[in-house]
Amino acid sequence: MDETAVEVVIRDMNAGITLSGYNPGAAFNFLTARLNDNPTLKQHFDPFRDRLMDYTDSDELLRPNGMERADYETMKLRPLPRNAPLQFREEILWIPGSEYFIRPDSGGRLADINLVPPRGLRFTASRPHFFSASLELIQDKCDFTDRETETIAELRQRIIAGESSIEEAFSHYPLWYETLKKQFSFTESAYYTLEAKISPQEKIPSRRLLVSLRLSSALGEQNIQFYEWIIL
Rank of each mutant, 00 (worst) to 15 (best):
D2K: 11
E3Q: 14
T4K: 01
V6L: 13
V8R: 11
V8S: 10
A15T: 04
N23F: 10
A26M: 05
A27K: 00
F28C: 04
L31A: 12
L31E: 10
A33P: 04
A33N: 13
L35D: 09
L35S: 07
D50V: 05
D50W: 04
Y55V: 11
Y55A: 06
T56A: 09
E68I: 11
R69H: 11
T74A: 14
L77Q: 15
N83T: 08
L86C: 00
R89A: 02
E90H: 03
I92H: 06
I92Y: 11
W94Q: 14
I95W: 08
P96W: 11
P96S: 11
S98P: 09
Y100A: 06
F101M: 08
P104F: 08
D105F: 01
S106E: 15
S106K: 11
S106L: 10
R109Y: 14
D112A: 13
R119E: 15
R122G: 06
R127C: 02
S132C: 04
A133D: 10
A133G: 12
L137F: 05
L137K: 05
Q139M: 13
D146N: 05
T149K: 09
I152Q: 04
E154V: 03
R158Q: 15
A161N: 15
A161P: 00
E167K: 06
F170A: 09
Y173Q: 03
L175Q: 10
Y177H: 13
K181M: 15
Q183M: 02
S185H: 02
F186E: 02
A190R: 07
Y192T: 08
E195R: 08
S199M: 03
I204S: 04
P205M: 04
S206G: 03
L209A: 09
S212H: 03
L213Y: 07
S217V: 05
S217M: 03
L219G: 00
Q222W: 02
I224Q: 01
E228K: 14
W229G: 03
W229H: 12
